[in-house]
């Protein structure tokens, strides 16, 4: 027997609607978590990334140990996929620390709550937001749209670097916007390839006067700054990639209201005409309808007792009254 399960409250319904697949997708949310053993460095990196992403509830940080999560091993992703579904996150950063892989950070993406691709990086050098004075005047505004700078041919030539570039972009880019405030350009992620390492720097942007329309730029490190070594990676399978890269068919034509027509009528517009109040309308007064003229016409027709006009008649009446009064 099957039955329909509906959400019991409106709130639950809204929540489900938020999670539903859409043509224009929501901002990808980030899940931050760590394994059974984790170094203080990795913990600090995770909390720094959380700090960067938390605006608009775009990041969820789990603070307990997760012993079932081993993203690269088969069966070790079940727990991760469950958490992804639970929190509706499609990006994750998993921190761990072992003798074999010290200061380890696994970055990955999910598609339809299943692991899409993974990349593992080791943290060689790390400067935190706090150590670089993140609270200073130049600190970027929380949740502002970041810029990305990638330097080095490795990001094009090497498969792992290419993947890391894409993941970093996906991780931090936030909402896709149509307009951007030029004053609001205040942060940039600089990624530079250095042999087998990637130097990731989060910098604040200072716009300086240059005498022309375009300002001069100065970058100030605001943290976190990371030197990363790429370890293991897993690319998506061909089918999965094809499925995930599908783009919706967009109709660029916007529906025009109140304009219709065909080949016979041509273009026909419909306009709104408000209701006319004929009752209280001020019409032009016509001479022929004036009372004096109306009465004059009556006199002329013969009811006036030889008087020339109603005016004469009125004067006569008045005269008579005065004579009666004083006599």
């Amino acid at each position: 027997m099957l039955r329909i399960v509906k959400p019991k409250t409106k709130r639950a319904k809204r929540e489900l609607e938020k999670r539903a697949p859409k043509l224009e997708e929501n901002v990808k949310k980030l899940l931050l978590l760590h394994g059974t053993s984790v170094s203080s460095v990795v913990k600090a990196v995770i909390s720094d990334i959380y700090h960067l992403k938390k605006t608009g509830r775009n990041a969820i940080k789990l603070t307990r140990k997760n012993d079932n999560v081993r993203p690269f091993e088969s069966g070790g992703e079940t727990s991760l996929e469950f958490l992804s579904q639970k929190t509706d996150c499609s990006l994750f950063a998993f921190g761990s620390h072992s003798k074999k892989r010290p200061h380890n950070l696994v970055l990955g993406r999910m598609y339809d709550y299943h692991v899409y691709d993974l990349i593992e990086v080791g943290i060689d050098q790390y400067k935190s937001i706090a150590s670089l004075g993140g609270g200073r005047k130049l600190a970027p505004q929380e949740g502002s749209k970041p810029c990305f700078v990638f330097v080095g041919e490795a990001f094009e030539a090497k498969e792992q670097f290419k993947q890391l570039k894409e993941i970093i972009l996906d991780l931090f880019r936030g909402e896709v916007v149509e307009t951007v405030n030029l004053v609001g350009l205040d942060r940039v992620f600089v990624c530079v390839a250095a042999a087998d390492k990637v130097l990731l720097r989060h910098c604040g942007i200072r716009l300086m006067k240059s005498g022309s329309k375009v300002p001069a730029i100065e970058l100030v490190e605001v943290g976190p700054s990371l030197d990363l070594t790429i370890r293991r990676n897993r690319l998506p399978s061909g089918d999965l990639k094809k499925e995930a890269m599908k783009t919706p068919f967009k109709t660029t034509k916007k529906k025009v209201k109140n304009v219709s027509g065909d080949s016979f009528a041509g273009k026909v517009g419909r306009i709104y005409v408000p209701r006319q109040e004929v009752e209280g309308m001020a019409l032009t007064k016509m001479k022929g309808l004036k009372r004096e003229r109306r009465e004059a016409a009556i006199w002329r027709s013969g009811d006036g007792n030889g008087m020339k006009s109603p005016r004469d008649h009125k004067l006569l009446q008045h005269k008579k009254q005065r004579i009666d009064k004083y006599s």
Binding site: K145, C147, V151, G152, E153, E156, A193, A194, A195, D196
Partner: peptide, 16 residues
Amino acid sequence: LGNLLVYDPTHPGISP
């Protein structure tokens, strides 16, 4: 420009 991303593929990278 949509992602505010700029990439220099000709740069050899920094020597480590």
